Simulated assay, not measured.
Amino acid sequence: MSTGKSVDTVLSEMRRAMATLESAVDARIDRERQHHEADGEVRRVHADRARLAQELDQAEFRANRLEEVNREVSRRLVTAMETIRAVLDR
């Protein structure tokens, strides 16, 4: 009977070892999945950053252009006011 008990013991140990191995494999697969998800998130963040940098550049260009137009309008208003004053002073 001790041989039968030894076989049962060995089978039980083998089952525990297989369960431990399966758990380790599952944990490794989960870590790999999380790693891939993190890589995807990093790629999305980089893409968003590039898009936002481009939008910022465009907004700065528009702001600079508006500032130039504002200066030109201001210059023209000053010229118009000076012309009106000159006409009224005559």
Score class of each variant (00 low, 15 high):
M1A: 09
S2M: 13
S2N: 15
T3H: 07
T3W: 13
G4Q: 15
K5Y: 12
K5W: 08
S6I: 07
S6V: 05
V7C: 14
D8C: 07
T9L: 12
V10A: 12
V10N: 10
S12P: 01
E13M: 08
M14L: 11
M14K: 05
M14D: 12
R15W: 15
R15E: 14
R15Q: 06
R16C: 04
R16N: 12
R16Q: 10
A17V: 04
A17M: 02
M18P: 09
M18N: 14
M18I: 09
T20D: 12
S23H: 06
S23Q: 14
S23W: 12
S23C: 05
S23L: 06
S23V: 08
A24G: 03
V25N: 04
V25E: 09
V25Y: 02
V25Q: 04
D26L: 13
D26E: 05
A27V: 01
R28A: 08
I29D: 15
D30N: 15
D30I: 05
R31E: 09
R31Y: 07
R31P: 03
R31T: 10
E32I: 08
E32D: 02
E32T: 01
R33Y: 09
R33S: 13
Q34R: 13
H35K: 09
H35E: 06
H36S: 11
H36F: 10
E37S: 02
A38Y: 11
A38M: 14
D39S: 12
D39P: 07
D39V: 07
D39H: 09
V42G: 08
V42Y: 06
R43M: 08
R44F: 01
V45A: 13
V45W: 10
V45M: 13
V45L: 07
H46P: 05
A47F: 00
A47S: 03
D48S: 12
D48Y: 15
D48N: 14
R49T: 15
R49M: 15
A50F: 01
A50S: 13
R51Y: 08
R51G: 03
L52M: 03
A53Q: 12
Q54E: 14
E55C: 02
E55W: 00
E55M: 02
L56F: 05
D57K: 14
D57N: 08
A59H: 00
A59N: 04
E60W: 12
E60R: 15
E60G: 01
F61C: 04
A63M: 06
N64M: 07
R65F: 02
R65W: 01
L66P: 00
E67G: 01
V69D: 00
N70Q: 15
N70A: 04
R71W: 11
R71Y: 00
R71F: 03
E72Y: 02
V73Q: 00
S74V: 00
R75I: 00
R76P: 00
R76E: 02
L77C: 04
L77R: 05
V78M: 09
T79Q: 08
T79I: 07
A80N: 02
A80V: 11
M81R: 14
M81S: 12
M81W: 12
E82N: 06
T83C: 13
T83I: 05
T83H: 11
T83K: 11
I84P: 03
I84K: 10
I84C: 05
R85S: 07
R85D: 14
A86K: 13
A86V: 06
V87S: 15
V87R: 14
L88D: 01
L88V: 01
L88K: 09
D89M: 13
D89K: 07
D89W: 14
D89Q: 07
R90H: 04
R90L: 06
R90K: 14
R90N: 08
